[in-house]
Simulated assay, not measured.
Amino acid sequence: MAYKSTSFFADLVRCETRLYNALNDRLRERHGIVTSQYEFLHHLREHPGARVAELAAEFAIGIGATSKGMDRLERRGWVARQPNPADRRSSLLVLTDEGARLADAAERTFTERLAELLGGPLSDAQLSPAARALSLLRTALERDGIGTPTG
């Protein structure tokens, strides 16, 4: 079992890296952003008024890295920070109109490219159980707080 687990891990990580890089290339080419920026914009479109800590938890990255990512998006005019009426120490993050337009356009590119990357080597019948297995694993890791960054 150890060999299979080690092999699974290597395949999972290398696939993720290659998919992420391929999506980076397409998003950069068409929209001038990278995958992590797209993911932030997409999340904020779906969850307007999120806080930096919520984004950090969603993406399993540190709060400092998340805040710096938001600073970059804010400087580009795609995200705005609004005062949090429930907590003066934090801000609520929202997309600007320009950020929402970018998120919509980038989502089409992202979805199209991901379908190309996954649909070539995998059929729907193969992809569906793989997606379920990864969802179960992610749920268990998140439930148990495994791999949560500190800071």
Score class of each variant (00 low, 15 high):
E16W: 10
E16T: 09
L19G: 00
Y20W: 11
Y20F: 14
N21E: 10
A22T: 06
A22M: 04
A22W: 02
E29M: 07
E29A: 11
R30V: 07
I33N: 01
I33P: 01
Y38A: 02
E39V: 07
E39Y: 05
H42E: 12
H43N: 12
H43E: 15
L44R: 05
L44H: 04
R45A: 10
E46D: 14
H47V: 11
H47F: 09
A50K: 05
R51Q: 15
A56T: 03
E58I: 04
E58C: 10
E58S: 11
A60M: 12
G62H: 03
I63D: 06
G64M: 11
A65Y: 05
A65W: 01
A65I: 00
S67D: 10
E74F: 02
E74M: 05
R76Q: 13
G77I: 05
A80N: 12
R81E: 08
P83N: 09
D87K: 11
L92T: 06
L93W: 14
L95H: 02
L95Q: 01
L95M: 04
T96C: 05
D97P: 06
G99E: 02
G99T: 01
A103P: 07
D104Y: 06
D104S: 14
D104E: 14
A105R: 15
A106P: 04
A106Y: 00
A106M: 04
F110C: 01
L117E: 12
G120H: 11
P121R: 08
P121K: 03
P121C: 07
S123A: 03
S123Y: 02
L127H: 04
L127T: 11
S128C: 05
P129R: 05
A130N: 00
R132E: 15
R132S: 09
L134C: 09
S135D: 13
L136H: 12
L137A: 15
T139H: 14
R143W: 09
R143Y: 10
D144G: 08
G145L: 08
G145R: 02
I146R: 11
I146K: 10
